[in-house]
Simulated assay, not measured.
Amino acid sequence: MLTALPLALIAVITVVDIVSPPQIHLGPLLIVAPALTASFAGARATAGVALLALAGLTVIGLARDGLTTANHETQLGAQIVVSVLIVALRVLRDRHERELARVRSVSEAAQRVLLRPLPDRIGPLHLASVYLAAEAEAQVGGDLYAAARTTTGTRLLVGDVRGKGLSSLGDAALLLGAFRAAAHLHADLPALAAYLDGSVCWDLAQLGEQARRNRLTTGDGPEEEAAPDDAGESFITAVLLDIPDDDSVVRLIDCGHPPPLLLRPDGITTLAARHPAPPLGLGELAPARYEVEVVPFRPGDRLLIYTDGVIEARDARRRFYPLEERVAAWQSDRPAVLLHRLRRDLLAHVGGHLDDDAAMVVVERLPADG
């Protein structure tokens, strides 16, 4: 359909120019055809339309003053130069689009490896998740989630690395790898939390040491040496959940993370921890005592775990996203449908672009025969 438009323009301009009075010259307008083609088609199609436009200009010259007049030779020369420029720009754009496609494919592959999709069903639980990266071309950033089966149930991790986008990928990868390796090895949740905190602290210490070595190697001055290491300011808020198969409860440890919402037919409860722990990565500054919160989690109950990119999203009037209010309107929907509604509503609230990464996970305990 679009391809027919420049062809029609060439035909119309050629015919109208031929039948117009001698003092009217519409031939130069033929350059519009390849310019228009370059906006939606590739370099080959653009070059083909440019050749047809030159053919149209040649037909006009033959029908009117002849090909050897100064006026027509000037028009042909100008058309050739502009056509070459248009095709060259289209070639550069095609190359850029191919590079962008390769970057996107690498990003998607990284997402599949780093942030593996949660299974729809794990043990007696039904899971659904959604991830929204703040950076336009990124598929994954500093928010994270993972699930792991143990001999007695399912463990879940939802976290948020300080910072956003691609710069926080390293810390997210570290925590996800540590969780997947250790989730089934530690008998209780506090031991797992302590292990994860130790892993993050060790990695951040290594990054800080490497940064100091780099400054010494490059010979930076006192101002650079006095600057705080970004690695030393890093931490990860997280919530750890342990949901046993044979007991209708959920055990959780909140490490400085926004509290999950417990969705039941009779209402919504915010699971604010009575004894929250500091974010992961700050254990060396303030050794944590990990207190486990135990909450009834019966068949049909749902948990909504989210990152602060959701509740801190602002609209044009700087109002925060009213997550609990929105969830109350849709909590009877299936988990995947609920998250689809929340995702669409959240993006509408912020005008289509988030300032921070956002992730949401819904966990539903299925009936025994489900």
Rank of each mutant, 00 (worst) to 15 (best):
R317L: 09
I253Q: 04
S332W: 12
A38M: 00
G142V: 10
A147K: 01
E209I: 11
L241S: 00
R213M: 06
P124L: 07
R274H: 10
H275L: 14
L280T: 00
P117I: 02
L346K: 07
I24C: 06
V82D: 05
L76G: 04
A53P: 02
L261C: 06
A172C: 05
P278D: 07
L175H: 03
L339M: 11
I122E: 12
L2P: 09
T14Y: 04
Q111G: 09
G42V: 02
P299T: 03
D242R: 01
V161T: 09
R326L: 15
A211S: 12
A50T: 11
G42P: 04
A109F: 14
P228H: 15
E325C: 10
D203T: 05
T150I: 01
A41I: 03
P222V: 13
L285K: 13
I243F: 11
P34L: 00
A173I: 05
L118C: 14
S332I: 10
T68W: 15
M1K: 09
G256K: 14
A101E: 03
P244N: 04
R344Q: 10
G221E: 12
Y306D: 01
S107R: 01
L263T: 01
R319K: 06
L354H: 03
L204C: 09
W202V: 06
R326H: 14
P6N: 08
